[in-house]
């Protein structure tokens, strides 16, 4: 068996291969060590929680983005979705509930009621718009880069129109606080939620037909079509899930902040792509693992956190993120060449 023969390799090769296969985990551990060394507050309760919440938000976006990249497309609208989905949901909820006589917005812009329906609407709106991206892309056969770029404009413009540019505050909304700040065994519930979503996606990809559909759609679309797979459907699904995960990320973000900002999430689409690339997902489609993207989101968030703790201003972080994107992408290009 070929798989067994690899373990007979000389003692020299095994550790090199081990490092290569577990690169992301090794980087993560190194970062943790660095964090502990560089800053006394790194392991502090508040700091850990903030890292975990950020990881959950970026990780969700990255998982959705990874699925889209696996089917050889790209989604630039996830950042704008993070603002649009809650703003649209609240506007819709206001309309629906005012029909039954409940006003959910008090004062100028305090949301006071209707948490459940808002949450449901956020999920619905984000998934549907994600799917709409996918439908335009597969039906009109136009590049996803342009369609989702157009959608980015549309969604961020709509967010402004619906909100008038003002923040919506959730401080008086019953349940919103516990939605955003619940903690279980010292770990934010929302982080557990993110891990659950991540593990679910990994399991579904690995142990059900869905994985083969997604990977074959991106890996060799013609082959998939010839095998009778409806690749259009799976692309639409990937975009739908990407939208949905942006919606969930928005819920975590806003419930934590206790407000919905018109500009929240702006630029996050690029970070989600960066994380996916660091995690080993490539633009060629059909390559890479979701687990990689999940670890990469932690890597990125911890790194940004350490940089803040050592007092680096935001501008340098931007530079470093850029360098990491180039570095990660060139590493894939290099390993592809040598393999």
């Amino acid at each position: 068996m070929a798989s067994e023969s690899s373990s007979i390799n000389g003692g020299f090769i095994v550790p090199a291969k081990f490092i290569k296969n577990n690169m992301l985990i090794i980087i993560l551990l190194l970062e943790l060590i660095m964090g502990v060394i560089l800053s006394p507050v790194f392991l502090g309760n508040t700091n850990v929680q903030s890292i975990l919440i950020n990881t959950a938000i970026f990780g969700l976006l990255a998982v959705g983005q990874s699925l889209v990249m696996l089917v050889k497309e790209i989604d630039l609208s996830v950042g704008a979705m993070m603002a649009f989905s809650p703003i649209a949901a609240i506007a819709l909820a206001k309309k629906i509930l005012s029909a039954s006589g409940t006003e959910i917005i008090m004062g100028s812009n305090y949301v006071v009621d209707g948490l459940f329906i808002i949450v449901v609407l956020v999920l619905l709106v984000s998934a549907l718009i994600g799917m709409l991206n996918g439908i335009i892309i597969v039906k009109a056969k136009v590049p996803s880069l342009i369609v989702t770029l157009g959608m980015l404009y549309v969604l961020s413009g709509m967010s402004y129109i619906l909100s008038g540019g003002y923040s919506l505050y959730l401080t008086n909304l019953k349940g919103a606080k516990s939605l955003g700040s619940s903690i279980f065994a010292g770990i934010p519930v929302n982080f557990i939620l993110f891990l659950a979503v991540g593990v679910l996606v990994i399991l579904v990809l690995k142990y059900t037909k869905v994985g083969n559909r997604i990977y074959s759609t991106g890996g060799n679309e013609k082959a998939a079509i010839y095998s009778g797979i409806n690749t259009d459907f799976w692309k639409v699904m990937a975009f739908g899930i990407s939208g949905l995960s942006a919606g969930i990320a928005a819920l975590i973000y806003s419930s934590r902040l206790q407000s919905v900002e018109t500009i929240q999430g702006s630029g996050y689409e690029l970070i989600s792509i960066a994380i996916a690339v660091i995690g080993g997902i490539t633009l060629e489609g059909g390559r890479g693992k979701i687990s990689g993207a999940i670890i990469a989101s932690a890597i990125l968030c911890i790194m940004l956190n350490i940089l803040s703790l050592v007092g680096l201003i935001a501008w340098y972080k931007t530079i470093i993120i850029g360098l990491i994107i180039i570095g990660a992408a060139s590493q894939h290009a290099f390993s592809r060449k040598t393999s």
Binding site: K209, N212, R213, Y215, S216, G219, N220, K222, A223, A224, Y226, S227, G228, I229, G286, R287
Partner: peptide, 16 residues
């Protein structure tokens, strides 16, 4: 060719 390069032989034979 109608095989998916990054998938295994089994996965390709049983695709769909």
């Amino acid at each position: 060719p109608t095989l998916v390069p990054n998938m295994t032989v089994v996965e390709n034979i049983f695709l769909n």
